[in-house]
Amino acid sequence: MSDESAVGTQQASSGSDAAAPSKLSVEGVSKIFGGLVAVDDVDFSIAPRSIVSIIGPNGAGKTTFFNMLTGLYKPSTGRIVFDGRDITGTRPDRITAFGVARTFQNIRLFSTMSAVENVMVGQHARMKGGMFSSILRTPGVRREEREVRERAREMLDYVGLRAAEFDQVSSNLSYGDQRRVEIARALASEPSLLLLDEPTAGMNPNESARLTEFMGKLRDERDLTILLIEHDMKVVMEVSQHITVLDHGEKIAEGLPQEIRENERVVEAYLGKSAGD
């Protein structure tokens, strides 16, 4: 059902791409580990309220790129601007407070915490309770705790976790549910830009399709801009308005899904050069 509507908005927003100020813009960013250039002089930008994918073979530097956007790595060169604010080399928790949230390729939930507690940690940046007020448990802290817990439950409900699982220790949840909790935890920080690192990894086609639909819903209902690293081409082609392709740390192509599908360099990167070459 979201299929056609996604295509519709895709054309609409790709038309306005040039005019709108970008949500996130990356200028000449590189990351060098010792002698290895993991990301090489990448320029990149996302329009607000769009869904954009980064694809590329394993080791192309996609996750390194994400880690720079979220402040886990400091770029070796270049500039990252989010919502008109330079966030190059800013601390990860500050970037989260500015409104960037992420999930991880290999799920990184706090394994001994319950689903609800995980999502409560996600709201850390939006909370005020300090040490002394927590010790005294002031009315303000009491109210905040209640609200945060309530919001965590709403968020888990929103991503489709069954209420019976809310208080389960997260490591006891099924793989799909863990992915859900991770998205809920990211959403709990009230981001305007959501970075998803291979969200459909390990999912069956059915689950992937549902997640694809959910991403459209997230953008429409919560005004989110979504940046996606994904290997599942079906998901990528269906959901993205724009695709950027990395290979060996370099951006080798970008454009509409249709253009990427037919781009020779992309096909080469994925399938190798043809024997005759």
Binding site: T70, G71, L72, R91, P92, D93, R94, T96, A97, A101, R102, F104, R108, L109, F110, S111, T112, M113, V121, G122, Q123, H124, A125, R126, R185, A186, S189
Partner: peptide, 13 residues
């Protein structure tokens, strides 16, 4: 449990 995830969730390390 996980320093990287905590930092990414807004916990100032």
């Amino acid at each position: 449990e996980d320093e990287v995830a905590a930092a990414s969730m807004g916990v100032p390390l």
